[in-house]
């Protein structure tokens, strides 16, 4: 009876057996910059939009065939449409934490030529975001979650932001399939700093983001037979 239950459970899970997974970020950047009325180092304006632009510095995994350092090409991304929810303030006056969740939002990765983008101050302007969203749309997706975490006490004014991406479009979308015919979710993650030091901060942007995207694939699986399954659980 126990064996039957185990087999049935496995069948409900797709009758698959685990196989090794790959690791590593598919997209890495240094940096991206964040702006918009929904961006704040402390309390975001509820309902306001958060946006950002970035330049890819490295690809790996299923995108490892792309060369981010190709002098004839530029890989850039934009995100926008993230709508600030009420900022959650916690802690004590000397150690105050600001957590802002965002709803909605999209992200797009482009391959363009020539290398024409730059983090021009005070976006939006003639360069931002237009030079980050030109060329071929390689990937696009929507955020299913997104938040920023800041504080009032770290010496280098640092925190982090993170979101989950549901990939849905672009010429390279098929490369993100996780083995079940569905794209693997993306984990958009990394540190942020709101230091305004020249060389770090840029006027008009709230955060510098050092981050990456990982593919959070469910553990890959391989087809198995009834016989193999029963033999496995007879052990």
């Amino acid at each position: 009876m126990k064996i039957r239950n185990l087999i049935l459970s496995a069948l409900l899970l797709g009758a698959f057996v685990s196989a090794p997974a790959f690791a590593g970020p598919v997209i890495d950047w240094d940096p991206a910059y964040v702006y918009g009325p929904g961006a704040s180092t402390t309390v975001a304006l509820t309902g306001a939009e958060l946006k950002g632009v970035g330049i890819v510095s490295m690809f790996d995994g299923p995108l490892g065939f792309l060369d981010a350092n190709d002098p004839t090409k530029e890989y850039t991304f934009v995100f926008r449409g993230l709508i600030a929810q009420p900022t959650i303030i916690s802690g004590i006056p000397a150690f105050t934490f600001y957590t802002t969740n965002y709803s909605g939002g999209i992200i797009e990765l482009y391959e363009g030529s020539p290398r024409n983008s730059s983090f021009a101050p005070n976006p939006e302007n003639a360069i931002v975001p237009s030079t980050f969203q030109d060329g071929t749309l390689l990937l696009s997706g929507t955020f299913t979650s997104f938040y920023t975490q800041t504080n009032n006490f770290t010496q280098s004014k640092s925190g982090n932001m993170e979101g989950t991406i549901l990939w849905s479009g672009g010429t390279l979308l098929p490369l993100f399939n996780g083995g079940n015919g569905q794209p693997c979710p993306g984990l958009f993650t990394g540190g942020i700093t709101w230091s305004t030091e020249p060389g770090v901060g840029i006027p008009g942007y709230v955060f510098r983001h050092d981050g990456k995207i990982d593919l959070n694939c469910p553990t890959p699986s391989a087809p198995s037979t009834w016989g193999q399954m029963k033999a496995r659980y007879r052990d």
Partner: peptide, 26 residues
Amino acid sequence: WTFAGTTANELNRPSGYDHQVDGQIF
């Protein structure tokens, strides 16, 4: 100085490691 983001939400993190780290030094 250096700063970094850390997360335990990456599914492919090798067993026994606590967080993924992504940072810079200036």
